[in-house]
Design a protein around this nucleic acid. Structure first.
Lengths: 210, 210
DNA sequence: AATTAAATTAAACAAGTGTTTAATTTAAAC
DNA sequence: GTTTAAATTAAACACTTGTTTAATTTAATT
């Protein structure tokens, strides 16, 4: 079976259940029987539609990341000053990932351990493309004399995404620490405080002269 | 069997092998037979010494994190200006984690999925203690008028650790992107460039006035 | 309506899982 | 040297794993 790029309703149903379970219990921690039971299908259907459990994961990654690239590229041509563009980029990132916590958690987890075998080429391309967009924005700011010039651009992304992920990976700890007792309070903290913190951090890094 | 806080040579041998394998293939991806084979012991020895696979992980976390607290606390009483203290704190963090990649990777991975059942109380205490130390350093800088006062201190740690982890979790991607073709080049990049980037970022965040 | 293809199923497969048992070897205590 | 405890072993246990098979049902095509 070749790697499919479009999926029918049944396949999407399986992908959605798999996303939830993989995110919750990890790839190895989730069995095909778990998925089948939750999706109310026969256990043979996963192999039938995707070939194997591994290929199911590959399909899932493709399914969820295919439209992220465009969103970033659209930002590039918008008529905003460099700082506003960076702020909006961060907003887009956080919001996109926060609304798709499942797949990004899986990527964060599994790509690190399964990378040798997985078909993550398209994912690599996505990242390089996003990096190029970020580079374009920062160069624009440097040309206008707003940003400093001795910035390691490839390390900006780790600071943006890393801060978010570290926060989210330790959800329970921070909910406890910051007294975010409901899911709403937690999400609100991400969208307001955490986003602001990251924007503030990157802004300071880009502008500050020692 | 009660939770043991000191380990004999054989137990340490098992813990070391488990650390490598858990870090490499994840907790669920590693079987007791894998560990037994690698450590050249009988498969029953893990249950004999630790009670279960789960308890082995708990023991491992305890074994590797028990001495981190002191290191941070010692920094507190050193006679350095606030910026230097923060820089050294970051250096300690990165170096400590970088030299113990295994266990921190495991923590990063497994605490997020296994948190309900795991005995990570001591780990929680460690984090809260470290946060207090950071708070003390920043307050000192604020009192001296060097740091700004509208800083979200609990979000500093996610930025420091998150940046590092995101970089390290995507090791292959960054080795490729930055042309770090050997293990030495990679480690050197962490100790020089990445550490500097994080120090620069936090410094800018703490000092910058908009 | 008959034929062909796709979808779905229960059952079986072989291999791997964590853990326990009971027997044996090694070491320690007396 | 004998007794007692600890360490180690191979084997078995019951159960779960991903995948495949062959039979059956459903849908589409002619």
């Amino acid at each position: 079976m070749a790697f499919k790029t479009d999926f029918n309703d049944k396949q999407i149903q399986i992908l959605q259940v798999a996303e939830i379970l993989f995110a919750e219990k990890g790839f190895d921690g989730t069995s095909i029987r778990n998925i089948a039971k939750e999706a109310k299908i026969n256990i043979a259907m996963v192999s039938y539609y995707f070939g194997s459990k591994e290929r199911l994961l590959e399909s899932l990654i493709f399914y969820r990341t295919k439209d992220l690239k465009i969103q970033i590229e659209n930002l590039l041509v918008e008529n905003l000053d460099p700082i506003a563009k960076i702020n909006k980029l961060i907003e887009i990132y956080i919001n996109k990932i926060n609304c798709n916590k499942g797949i990004f958690r899986i990527l964060h987890f599994e790509v690190a351990t399964k990378k040798k075998e997985l078909n993550i080429k398209s994912f690599y391309e996505l990242r390089k493309s996003n990096l190029k967009s970020l580079e374009a924005i920062i160069n624009e700011g440097q040309d206008k004399g707003v940003f400093r010039k001795d910035i390691s651009i490839p390390l900006i992304t780790p600071t943006i995404l890393g801060t978010f992920f570290h926060f989210h990976m330790n959800k329970e700890y921070f909910m406890n620490l910051l007294q975010l007792n409901t899911e709403d309070l937690y999400n609100n903290y991400i969208n307001v405080n955490l986003t602001k913190h990251i924007q503030q951090t990157i802004k300071a890094l880009l502008i500050y002269e020692s």
